[in-house]
Amino acid sequence: MNPILGLLSGLVFGLGLVVSGMADPAKVLNFLDLFGTWDPSLAFVMAGATVTAHVGYRLVWRRAAPLRMPEFDLPSARAIDAPLLTGAALFGLGWGIGGFCPGPALTALPLAAPGTLVFVPAMLAGLWMGGRAKSAMTHRKGPAT
């Protein structure tokens, strides 16, 4: 049951990415190009998604537990630390070059544009390498974040 519920959630997420235009790197890069061919559409994506999630989370958290897991598991890290800011800065750099963040890249994969076919395997390798780098950092510095 869980894989099917996960699939449905992913399908809704992916449809949102496609309908909103986030899965089109040209639109993302134009959103980031404030001083050129600026397309403010993606501000509406962020607003719609964030407000919906904000309201929905509050309704969901009235329950004692989620439907399919024993408890809610929210990120406990609070620190605005070097891994957070370094990682985010790197991510922004890559996002600005390619116009893809992880969700849209995966959703666009079956459309099989050459740029996507190169981006996604490199991203998966990066996710693996970055995870190793982060655990090396946190093991040196103390508790995991």
């Binding site: 949102g16 986030m22 399919r68």
Partner: peptide, 24 residues
């Protein structure tokens, strides 16, 4: 379209929280 797509993304995040109790 972007607002509508954003709402779908938000709904998916709410589904993941309601069903699995996790961040999407």
């Amino acid at each position: 379209a972007s607002l509508a797509g954003g709402i779908l993304i938000g709904l998916s995040a709410v589904m993941v929280m309601a069903i699995f109790g996790r961040i999407a």
